[in-house]
Structure formats: C-alpha cells, structure tokens
C-alpha cells in the first residue's frame, strides 16, 4: 500500500468516525427535545402497587443447564387453575355472545 493510499484510508476512517459521532449526538439531542416538549404520559406501574406480598418463587436456578428449560416448562406448563369455576358478571357473559369460556 502506497503512502497516498494509507493517507486516504486514514482520512476515510477519521471522516467516518467524525460523521458517526456528530450524527449520534444529533439523534440523541433530538430525542431529548422531543421527549421533553412533545411526549407525555409514560407510566411505570410497579408490582407492589397491586400485590402486597410480591412474587413467591418456587424455583430459582442460576447458570441453568440447557436441560433445565425442558424441566421448567414441563413442570409449570399446565394450568393449575384449570378446574376452578367462578361467577362471572352478566355484562361479560352478554358480550361473549354465548356462555362458553375459552382458555386464553
């Protein structure tokens, strides 16, 4: 590679870095401005607002081997509430058109 080729390569690399950095900051500042002046109402409701006890864990495995995934979903894949029955408000039954309740 000749000296002029290496100089050209250096200029290209520097130019690319300059343009990318300038572009990144332009995008970031634009985002900050739109977030401040145009976009409102993002919410972040936490679990503790709706559940006093939080999550009770049955199983916590860190650095799990690949086989663990199959065991996990075999053990917890079935609906434990399948046979539970409940009284349902009439308005919900009316909207379903019939009284059959499908599994989501």
């Amino acid at each position: 590679m000749s000296n002029s080729d290496s100089a050209l390569l250096v200029i290209l690399v520097y130019s690319g870095m300059m343009i990318f950095t300038a572009l990144s900051y332009a995008v970031f500042v634009t985002y900050l401005i739109l977030r401040k002046y145009s976009d409102f109402g993002d919410s972040s409701c936490k679990l503790d607002e709706y559940s006093q006890r939080g999550i009770g864990y049955y199983r916590t495995v860190d650095d799990a081997p690949a086989m663990e995934k199959r065991f996990l979903f075999t053990e917890y894949g079935e609906n434990p509430y399948e046979n539970n029955t409940h009284s349902i408000p009439e308005v919900l039954l009316k909207n379903s058109g019939d009284n059959t309740i499908e599994e989501p």
């Binding site: 679990l47 709706y50 559940s51 006093q52 006890r53 939080g54 999550i55 009770g56 864990y57 049955y58 199983r59 916590t60 495995v61 860190d62 650095d63 799990a64 690949a66 663990e68 995934k69 996990l72 053990e75 917890y76």
Partner: peptide, 15 residues
C-alpha cells in the same frame, strides 16, 4: 451468556 430459570406465583388486587 448465562441462562436462568424462574417460576413463581403472586396474588394481585384491584388491577
């Protein structure tokens, strides 16, 4: 890369 497995239950009120 590591993998983690979790299983648990919770009770929610007035959601």
């Amino acid at each position: 890369t590591r993998y983690y497995s979790r299983a648990g239950e919770m009770t929610c009120k007035n959601v």
